[in-house]
Design a protein around this nucleic acid. Structure first.
Lengths: 231, 231
DNA sequence: GTCGTTTTATGAATTATGTCATATTCAAAT
DNA sequence: ATTTGAATATGACATAATTCATAAAACGAC
């Protein structure tokens, strides 16, 4: 973890419209000055479940996993987040601590704005407050929907669903390098590592995917979709 | 579904402090006049996934299930809601339609406030806006945590977890009448009806619970807790 | 009350998933 | 380059869960 040296002004940030479009110049300046950009290395823990919340954080670059650890020390991954995503918005208004852990799956750049500043603007700008509510609602929905989709499938369907998710939502192509291990893929779909690996092998044998280590190619996307729909 | 005739003023409502404590007299009056109280019978559909959102709704009396229906027509229940709970708050800011269906498990009284009125107050009263955000965050968290807890258990643990939930969170005693069928219990824990019934029978045979139809008595709560912790 | 439908219940067969053991490959650290 | 630990891979076996079949009990509509 280190501070970024070349910080971009929010005005030229591609994620500006996600959140800040309705701010006044003055409010805008407040955000800009209370803002830092932090770089996390692959594997670094960015947010610890139970930790204090002082910053409002969102991704500018990279990929992270959001997860919870159970009493036996096993992780359950809730989502994979990409640039433009807010990674602790659901915790901020819990009036408590961070509700989920977040760690970097690759080098990740985070914009971090002091929570006080954000709260100040929420109080003075209702349009901004409503936008924040929209984002909260969206984030909650995405997590809940994903669990809904996963719970109604069995292993093959779950793996297929996640491969589609990675291809369609994260990489926007059928060929990519897996950002997570097979164990983490298992933690994402609530399955054992062995079963997850076996299913991937089966997909390979069946000619649905090609795979060389972490490099994945979804060669028969139509069949993958079919597995995803029923299995 | 019918309108309630004896509507209580919000000022004497026991749920007032959940939400309205910081409103001005004027805002208060706005809520009170744009408010209706609706009574739903057991089994009635109160909110349909995909439907339009015009009202802000919360329970004053009764019990409901919040659920989603998958493409094969199977339901998955997300939560059971009780008086004081907001039943469409997560949908309101989705800028779309109702994200979940809600139906009454028993005679249920709902306070329904025009969404326009709520939005108006959010815009004029930032304290109220923040309270709404707190509630949203809480609701999302409860749903996500519950899925987290359920996913890491197998059938016995899941059934035990839900029985504890009903006893501790809903009825506040170890003896109660099940508000849902065994099928619905299965939909709540992502298991088949047969397995759910079998597990309940097993608990009975093992002397953990006593059961006569829908009447449940958790006679050996300590053992139930133990099953809940590991199984 | 009677009829029809849903719910509860249980057994047997089948399938899915988890566990344990073991081997190989890969990648990071020295 | 070598070591070490993690990740991938696979088989055999045990366990868990689903499916299908069937039946009794409970419940609502008439």
């Amino acid at each position: 973890m280190k501070l970024s040296k070349d910080i971009i002004n929010c005005k030229s940030c591609i994620y500006r419209n996600l959140l800040y479009e309705m701010l006044s110049d003055e409010e805008y300046e407040k955000v800009n000055t209370s803002r830092t950009e932090i770089i996390y290395d692959r594997g670094e823990l960015m947010i610890q479940e139970g930790g204090e919340i002082n910053e409002f954080m969102y991704l500018r670059k990279g990929l992270v996993k959001m997860y919870k650890t159970n009493s036996q020390g096993k992780d359950q991954i809730l989502t994979i987040n990409k640039p433009g995503d807010f990674i602790n918005l659901l915790s901020i208004f819990s009036q408590k601590t961070q509700q989920y852990s977040v760690s970097a799956l690759e080098e990740t750049h985070v914009c971090s704005v002091k929570l006080d500043t954000i709260m100040e603007i929420i109080k003075s700008n209702s349009e901004f407050a409503i936008r924040i509510m929209n984002r909260m609602s969206y984030i909650a929905d995405e997590i809940i929907k994903k669990r809904f989709e996963i719970n109604q499938r069995q292993v093959k369907g779950r793996v297929a669903y996640m491969l589609r998710f990675l291809a369609e939502q994260i990489y926007h192509k059928n060929e990519f390098r897996m950002p997570i291990t097979r164990r983490e893929l298992g933690e994402l779909i609530s399955m054992t590592t062995e079963n997850t690996i076996r299913t991937m092998s089966e997909f390979k044998k069946d000619g649905i995917i090609e795979m060389d280590g972490k490099n994945i190619h979804l060669v028969d996307f139509e069949r993958l979709k079919k597995v995803c729909e029923m299995g």
